[in-house]
Design a protein around this nucleic acid. Structure first.
Lengths: 145, 145
DNA sequence: CGGTGAAATGTTATGACATAACGCTATCGA
DNA sequence: TCGATAGCGTTATGTCATAACATTTCACCG
């Protein structure tokens, strides 16, 4: 049970199921965040019919770090960096109110400060949400500055 | 227009309306975050009947910095620091999955780093959400460590 | 090969969160 | 007094998410 390479049970990117793959591809091809129902609509012709089919797939994708949920939008995006679930588990998101696009980034300093706060308070940190709202450079550049 | 006390149009804590006051008191007396419908239920005997009455009050309270919306919970808390809307406009929240209690804090360094990122990217930052999930010291101390 | 258990699936129904649209009321300064 | 602005009350509806249950798929093991 403790074999060195006997790790078929680990947390790694195991193969995606059909529904999971469909949902992930949909997110990958999207310009911006999509709600579960947006995704469902795009996948009707692929046989999906109920919200749960999408939510279940999303749960797994988020669990594996392949997608993220944006709390302030109640919507989902695919992970910008295929390897982001390897290391920097705490991403930040800048969401443009103009075009709706999302820019994912990581700031180690920020992560560190928050972890330090948790440490100091004895707070068992499990997950962090960081979301910036505003207008991206492109949207500021053009219409209604 | 620049009279010293001619400032009835400013952003300051103008008097709250009846509904706003009811909602704020409800949040103040609560142990943890409340959903709009939780608040509505507590205020039925005061005459409130529809979600919109609560949501409208909440909008104003949040606008004035007297309450905060926790995106990851779809719930609301009163601002921990009466003066928090003066200066540190970017608060962070540590939400305990065990007891549901919320600890509000501000970390200038974090705020600064995020502002710096925005600056660098030309992102017009308007609002920031920072929410930590985990278990508070007290909950870690007792049951199911 | 066939059984078995874990995980995924499909479906219906329901719950929880939030806003649109409408008309009325109160307040306040010009 | 008039008109503008903000708040109020109500009904209806929209959006996001999960409960519950039956069925299917598939890797693994005896």
């Amino acid at each position: 049970m403790a074999h060195s390479h006997d790790d078929h049970h680990h947390e790694r990117p195991r193969d995606l199921t059909r529904n999971q793959d469909l949902v992930l591809q949909t997110l990958n091809h999207a310009e911006g965040p999509l709600s579960a129902y947006d995704i469902l609509d795009k996948l009707r012709e692929d046989g999906l019919r109920a919200p749960l089919q999408v939510y279940r797939a999303l749960d797994k994708l988020v669990e594996q770090g392949l997608a993220h949920r944006l709390e302030s939008l109640s919507a989902f995006v695919c992970c910008a960096d295929a390897g982001c679930h390897d290391g920097a588990r705490t991403a930040a998101f800048a969401i443009c109110s103009g075009c709706g696009r999302v820019d994912e980034f990581a700031d180690p300093e920020v992560v560190e400060r928050l972890a330090a706060w948790a440490q100091e308070k004895g707070f068992g940190l499990e997950r962090t949400t960081i979301e910036l709202r505003g207008r991206c450079a492109r949207c500021l550049g053009s219409s209604t500055p």
